[in-house]
Amino acid sequence: MTLVPLLVDVGAALEEATGLLQYALVFLFAAIPVIEILVVVPVAIGLGLNPVATGVVAFAGNVGSVYALIVFSRRIMDWWTGRREDGDGGPSDRYARARRLWDRYGLPGVALGGPVLAGVHVAALVALLAGSRSGAVAVWMTAGIAVWTVLLVLGSVAGFSLLGIV
């Protein structure tokens, strides 16, 4: 079975769009597990979108997709447990990283480190698979996404202003 990766040129899509459509794309891209806030926030700010609006919209998109994952977690977990092993029979790299994070730091560690180490969606699934309550996962993942969104907005603004881009 051949897997075709989802390749999206975030920068080109945001450049081609105008006005509110740009922010709608920021919302959408932030909700996509492979792209998330780590990609869309710096790209959008680098293209000149308002940093505060970009952060708010990206946060909403990322958190919204995590909440949807939590709401449908039972179905997703049934699917996930069937898919989480790679072709060699071992856990996938992303799942293994998230699981090590869980074993060492628990829900707070997964929520705060997950967005950069394994992706926020994988981190939320690991927390749910480990038996955490949905409400606790929602609260901690929201906090983790908020922290990373603020750091990404501030870092992007600072970095681009140092480079004279924005």
Rank of each mutant, 00 (worst) to 15 (best):
residue 148 W to S: 06
residue 161 S to Q: 14
residue 137 V to L: 10
residue 119 G to S: 08
residue 68 A to G: 12
residue 125 L to G: 06
residue 43 V to Q: 04
residue 61 G to V: 09
residue 115 P to C: 06
residue 123 A to S: 10
residue 11 G to T: 09
residue 28 L to T: 10
residue 166 V to T: 15
residue 86 D to M: 03
residue 17 A to M: 05
residue 155 G to T: 09
residue 111 A to Y: 01
residue 38 L to I: 15
residue 21 L to K: 12
residue 9 D to I: 02
residue 145 I to M: 07
residue 23 Y to W: 06
residue 135 G to C: 05
residue 54 T to S: 01
residue 51 P to T: 02
residue 68 A to I: 07
residue 26 V to C: 03
residue 127 A to K: 11
residue 113 G to Q: 09
residue 40 V to T: 04
residue 46 G to A: 03
residue 76 I to M: 11
residue 10 V to L: 00
residue 70 I to A: 04
residue 53 A to I: 12
residue 82 G to D: 10
residue 93 D to C: 01
residue 69 L to A: 06
residue 110 V to R: 03
residue 44 A to G: 07
residue 133 R to V: 01
residue 146 A to S: 11
residue 15 E to G: 08
residue 97 R to G: 05
residue 18 T to Y: 04
residue 83 R to S: 11
residue 102 W to N: 12
residue 112 L to I: 08
residue 164 G to T: 12
residue 75 R to T: 12
residue 45 I to R: 01
residue 5 P to L: 06
residue 128 L to I: 15
residue 104 R to E: 14
residue 20 L to N: 10
residue 87 G to S: 13
residue 145 I to N: 12
residue 161 S to T: 15
residue 36 E to R: 00
residue 166 V to I: 14
residue 14 L to I: 06
residue 14 L to F: 02
residue 73 S to I: 09
residue 164 G to I: 14
residue 119 G to P: 02
residue 38 L to A: 13
residue 127 A to N: 09
residue 109 G to D: 13
residue 113 G to L: 15
